[in-house]
Amino acid sequence: MDASLTFRSGIKDVLPTVFGYIGVGLAFGIVAHTSHLGLWMVAGLSFIVYAGSAQFIITSMLLAQDPITSIILSTFLVNSRMILMSTSLAQYFRHESLTRNILLGALVTDETFALAMNKQNQTAGKLSFAWQSAANLIAYLVWGVATLVGAYLGGLIKNPEQFGFDFALTAMFIGLVYLQLISDRKLGVRLQLLVMAFVALIYYFALGVISENMALLVATAAGCLFGMEMKKCR
């Protein structure tokens, strides 16, 4: 990853994350197929809702015939971390028009957010509309197509796990968090390591009492507050 912020370099930078989208997208398609969702429903979930992990939850709640309102509420809760990420990412695009801000915001994901944070470490804190749009669009299209392919082939692939693709998502976050750790010069390695250990600890204990997605939110927010305090102490 270099300092170039063109549309073309956006495409180049997003490519490594594509494996994660393909792996999880295929998995989602297969799950949707076995849950008897039609291709149109899969397409609607991937291209209109576009919500990654929330799509798995929507699918299982549909299967359990949960009421529409609780499905929508769960989706909101699972995706509420988007509010944190979007607020963070939006700082880099304040100079852009409102329309461009809305276009960028509409396709923010965990992965494109993490990628953008890695990128701005290389560019002295700058991001561009062209670069972010390229990353967003590639992620969006690859995700949608992968889920449809998964749903279409669902019956054919008996044991997709043997190829190790389900680990792509975790591997990708390991890579992203490591690159963030070594390249964020504003916070420094030592403070970040301390915050990471704190987040892992909170996440581990929270997991015993609340759902995975709530634990994710609680650990993130607690980690930010902890980091702010530690920074003051230095």
């Binding site: 504003k186 987040v199 996440y203 930010c224």
Partner: peptide
């Protein structure tokens, strides 16, 4: 100041999601 910590915390939490298995309760 809070938001400067969002990238590292959220990426750590997402990584942990892959490394732990939840058992409610």
């Amino acid at each position: 100041s809070f938001l400067t910590f969002v990238p590292i915390t959220i990426m750590t939490a997402l990584t942990c999601q892959g490394l732990f298995i939840a058992h409610p309760g």
